[in-house]
Design a binder for these strands. Sequence first.
RNA 1: GGCCCUAUCGUCUAUCGGUUAGGACACAUCCUUCUCAAGGAUGGAAGCGGAGUUCGAUUCUCCGUAGGGUCACCA
Length: 439
Amino acid sequence: MENTQKVVTRFAPSPTGNLHSGSYRTAIFSYLFAKKHNGEFILRIEDTDKERSKKEFEDNILDSLQWLGISYDSFYRQSEHIARHQQVLAQLIADGHAYISKEEAKDGSGVIKEIVRFKNPGTDISFQDEIKGTVTMHTGDLGDFVIAKSATEPLFHLAVVVDDFDEGVTHVIRGEDHVSNTPRQILIQRAIGAPTPIYAHIPLVLGLDKQKLSKRKGALAMTEYRDLGYLPVALLNMVSMVGWNPGTPQELFDKVALIAEFDLAKVQKSPAVFNPEKLDWFNREYIKQLSSVEFWNYAEKYIAQDIKLETLLRERITKFSDIKTMVDSGELSWFFAEPDMKLENIVWKNLKNDTEGITKTKKYIATVVENLEVVPEANWNKDSIKSAIWDFVEATGKGDVLWPMRLTLSGLDRSPDPFELAEILGKEKTIARLQKVIS
RNA sequence: GGCCCUAUCGUCUAUCGGUUAGGACACAUCCUUCUCAAGGAUGGAAGCGGAGUUCGAUUCUCCGUAGGGUCACCA
């Protein structure tokens, strides 16, 4: 590799909210870029605002990243570096790059405070953004912006610049909402003699309403997706592909594949909508790939492990909490208890107006029972069950036999097919339920 | 409103001046065991508008329009 400088990226969330898909994607891109270039990935909690920062949000961010498998090489809390920020601030004042200004507090209390403003040279600043290209802005209309609430309370812009410098950050990958902050941060870099890192401002993630993702608009926290029974790899795959794609038809990417494929140059320039339906699709795809053991590790939170139900569940759930929904809605009632339904319901629609309908249906069921009784217990599976009665079913009429058979076994208008039901129920229960209807 | 950015199916996107504008999700229809699910097949669905440049524009330029971001003693 020609580049001698080691790549260092950072994800720098403020602990003022839970980790949602927008901030998660910023973390992913920073992480993938670092790993792709054998670099380091830093997690830095930006907690300089003591009022708004909350420990619970920091915990949420940490929990989420761990669950999602995004590991970091270094961890910092910005507040722990306050002495260094204060020192740089004092130097800036001493050098004449900043000055103390006595002003009335903005909180309306009327007290006069000493804040620190950066002396803005008013030059045009342009920087090369990896995604947006050259961005030029006039810093003149920024005025002398505030960099500290007091001589001892440095603010965001100062802290970010100093920390990125001290931590050797080479690539700043962050949300597009930071582009307009970049010129003033570059101004500070120049004043303290820090190099300007390479910037990559990624377009925002939008909700279905095409607005910036927000909690109010229903953006879920990563931990909420976890609790709903989504798989970490599904979230990783989904989120990394909003606003980025490798340019190939491949859709499924795990972390290793993502690291191999990720390329900042292929990041989209325009904002992208997060589509929950696509997430559901990814999740189903990954559920299919789960081993039986893995499957039950997730499913056990919602239903007692029963291997007979595995295939049925796998085919029907989008996320693991759907199991609870199925149980609560009675969709699986046939598994737990004898179905309870009116006899006339089991008659197929063709025979509804036939006065002999019930009698005929009972005869069909009786024939089914006869055919099933010869199927050996050891060979009781849906294929053998099907072949045992299929000739009769075809000769009589599929709906005429299958509908009552299925209704008898499940008690539900909508359920898995009768062969699968019979297999899961077992020979004894199946025949008992069928016989009960006959008598 | 100032400044910055953006603009291909409903959504995520491919296309590096010449394509029947491709794929995925979603949707519709059909098939596969009666219903549900899964699976398979098929189908509908897009270049914001207007000027240029060019033999030729989705692609390059400009102007509109629309969307997003940002204008704190938050980050």
